[in-house]
Amino acid sequence: MNDLLLDVRDVSKTFVRGGLFSREEIVAVNKVSLQLAAGRPEILAIIGESGSGKTTLARMILNMVTPTSGRLLLDGTDLAAISGSAGRIAFMHKVQPIFQNPFESFNPLKRVERYLLMTRRRFAAAAGGSTAATAVDAALHKVGLSLKEVGGRYPHELSGGQLQRVAIARALLAEPKLIVADEPVSMIDASLRISIVNLFRTLRDELGISIIYITHDLATAYYISDRILIMQKGSVVESGDARAVLTAPRHPCTRQLREAALLPQIAGGGANASGTTQVI
């Protein structure tokens, strides 16, 4: 039964817009299925244009949005059956989110370690018996920070990259099996972006955490993900091994995304190759 960590079966989500007389149904996610195996951590990238339903799918996996039809099973538990705070905490213990803008995920008026300590307190019963501060420090060490560095600081005193690391450390305190990261690096500067992306790889390899990585950036998806899912207008149009899909896309939507992606490289002798002088 529990050989699947996450089993998404034919889920759909329809939003209804308008009032009594002008009802308009928007199908955000249309019969999507996906599976993550237990005990074999992987990074699954979900890619699509804006409005393709990738964020709605993530919110359904995080149990923040109830699907209109279909079932989601996490470790054998149906998400629809989760009720009460004990059930929710047990669920959050397994799945943790990371959001796009770290400056919005933290209250600007509170020191960042407060969130870490609160999270630790909430999951303390489940986690080991070490004191809160050492557990927080250990989580921060996993993301390349320490309590000494971030303790007593407010969110604006940290860079976007550091703050996103703190957000990841907070997620790690729950010792989750799955992290759902929605555009986690799109607000991060280029020079810091790759270190966050590398961190995901470390989490997978060293802590055995599966990661659902939602993005529109094909280059980072190619760089870290094992499997890839391309979404268009709520449906999955292509899926498979990340490298295979991105190097030889089959569906026209994937091809369109692939062609539209502006890669940071200069095509040989292109329009702007006016200064090709080599300096040694």
Binding site: A219, T220, P264, Q265, T276
Partner: peptide, 29 residues
Amino acid sequence: EAATAEIFRNPLHPYTQNLIASLPRIGED
């Protein structure tokens, strides 16, 4: 500062070098 192609092909400043080298590209592992 240089022609764009030159910056990408032959960055000289250590910051630029790191910036260009850190960019993931499809097809490079």
